[in-house]
Amino acid sequence: MNHLGYGFANGKIILMGEHSVVYGKPAIALPFKEVKIESYVSFTNSPITIDCLYYKGILEEADLVIEGIKKLVISVLEYLGKKPFGLHIRIDSKLPAQRGLGSSAAVSIAVVRSLFNLYNEILTDELLQYFSNIAEQIHHVNPSGIDSSTVVSNDAIFFQKDSEKTYIPLRVDGILVVADTGRMGKTKEAILEVKKLWKENPTIINPILDRLGELTNEVRSYLISNEVKRLGMALTEAHQLLKSINVSDEGLEKLVDAALASGALGAKLTGGGKGGCMIAVVESLEKAKAVAEALKENGASNTWFYHLKEVINES
């Protein structure tokens, strides 16, 4: 055993396919390494305690807001054959919560890694995925699994539910500007609303979901063949489709419009919607700075840059 267990996880950006991925369509997600979550676990002589953004105190007495983490911790300890007693868990996050950037999955991954590290136990990818899904089932309605897959990855992922994920080489001369609305997204609400629309109007909603799937496949090729302008057009079309199924909101619309007006090639919400974050694609760092400034002037609480081209070793 170690005296201190440590685990971390990155965030994630859904480039294409949010919501439609729940209905079996493909999605593309990127690991968001600019922000991460870290978990530290140490031994104590008292009931399990936790110190995180939403709660500080005895884990057993925590309210529903961290119910997923509570169940996750107990499940991991049971698997490891350890009593649910005598631990303190501290979670440090630079990843804004409930913004569609994978914070709940990242917390789960970091906590699982820290517990296995504390007891010096081997953690396979399969086990990590299994345990993170325990919390995700509580945090989200019918989670696709894309969050958990992406926050443990170093590569862009092409993901389809119940299919094998594949990795995409990024060869686009472009930069994503990621902007935080400053408001928590309402993922559960958005998923349930889309489900309701789908059940009531399948002949209207199915073609929208189909087109989102088609756009995701197109974007996959644009990322490989360096077609940044077509990428931008696809992002904007996807946003309009997502807007048509009521997962955007006034704040997101304002930021998307501001990004396009300031020179972005395309822009869309990312994640569950109804708050949270949006992304815009531009051709250069200079334009990224201009778009970021426009986004902040229109209410964005924070922005980050994400370069869409890997360093390719030609030798």
Rank of each mutant, 00 (worst) to 15 (best):
L77A: 07
T236A: 02
E310Y: 13
N206S: 13
I205G: 04
G7H: 01
Y6V: 11
F158P: 02
K83R: 15
R99G: 05
L241F: 04
E200T: 11
S163D: 07
K268H: 08
E227M: 11
S46Y: 07
A106T: 09
I279H: 02
I37Q: 05
K199L: 13
S149Y: 14
I13K: 03
N142P: 00
A234L: 08
A288H: 05
I89K: 00
A179V: 10
Y119F: 15
F32M: 01
H307T: 11
P26D: 10
E237T: 10
I312Q: 08
S132N: 12
H19T: 08
N142Q: 06
V107R: 00
I14A: 03
V107Q: 02
S262R: 01
L101H: 06
K289C: 05
E60Q: 06
G17T: 07
G102M: 09
G57A: 04
I74L: 14
N226L: 05
D257W: 00
D162V: 08
F116Q: 03
E253G: 07
I13R: 03
I134D: 05
C52K: 00
K243F: 00
F85R: 04
S104P: 05
C277I: 08
P207Q: 12
A294H: 02
F305E: 06
I168D: 06
T203K: 15
Y55M: 00
A62M: 03
T303Y: 04
S114K: 01
K71S: 11
E61V: 00
S262Q: 02
K25N: 13
P26L: 14
A190F: 09
V76R: 01
I175V: 15
S104H: 09
R230W: 05
R211I: 07
G251W: 06
H139L: 09
G86N: 06
G17F: 02
Y119L: 15
A105L: 10
S221G: 04
K161L: 14
L223D: 02
G57R: 02
K70C: 05
V152N: 10
I48N: 00
E136V: 11
H307F: 15
V194D: 01
M233A: 15
N142D: 11
F116G: 07
P31Y: 15
F32N: 00
K161F: 11
A29I: 10
S163P: 00
V228G: 03
F159G: 04
A259H: 06
F32Y: 11
K243G: 00
S315W: 08
S114P: 09
G272R: 01
E121Y: 09
M184H: 14
D51K: 15
D92K: 13
G275H: 06
V177N: 03
S284V: 08
W304P: 12
E136M: 12
P169R: 08
L115K: 01
V21W: 04
I204H: 11
F158M: 12
G68F: 07
E126C: 05
M233K: 13
K268N: 10
A238Q: 06
S114H: 03
N298D: 05
R99L: 09
A27F: 02
A105P: 09
L231M: 14
E18C: 03
A300T: 07
S225N: 15
N206W: 05
V247Q: 01
T49N: 10
M1H: 14
S132P: 14
V219R: 00
K289Y: 10
I204P: 04
E18P: 04
V112N: 04
E78L: 13
N45R: 13
